[in-house]
């Protein structure tokens, strides 16, 4: 288990009770989403589909790297890691 911070940018904050970051203990990204989802179901639904796939318009970065380049949702987390959710935004 690692203590990590999930950073939530403003478009998704309404689904996290307005929080910009949430802390949790988890060994892997999917576990982190599972734990966060227990309390913030709507947030996690915006990140992955019901069958557990990442949505094509949301990316998750661990240690500044897209988890698709790592082990996807099975990417291992270390103490102090910052997990950043980055949905596509179109505002201009």
């Amino acid at each position: 288990m690692a203590e990590v911070t999930l950073r939530i940018p403003t478009p998704l904050q309404p689904y996290a009770n307005g929080n910009g970051e949430l802390r949790a203990e988890a060994g892997y990204v999917d576990e982190l989403l599972e734990r966060i989802g227990a309390e913030h179901q709507a947030l996690v639904q915006r990140i992955r589909t019901r069958d557990g796939q990442l949505r094509p318009y949301v990316n998750v970065f661990v240690r500044r790297t897209d988890i698709r380049e790592l082990q996807g949702l099975e990417t291992e987390l270390h103490d102090g890691d910052e997990v950043i959710v980055m949905p596509s935004v179109a505002g201009g």
Partner: peptide
């Protein structure tokens, strides 16, 4: 490569939330 597809309307930020 970053975002293969746009979000569907129900997943995009709503007009009410728009603001910058």
């Amino acid at each position: 490569c970053l975002y293969p597809e746009p979000p569907p309307p129900d997943q995009a930020p709503s007009c009410a939330e728009a603001g910058v």
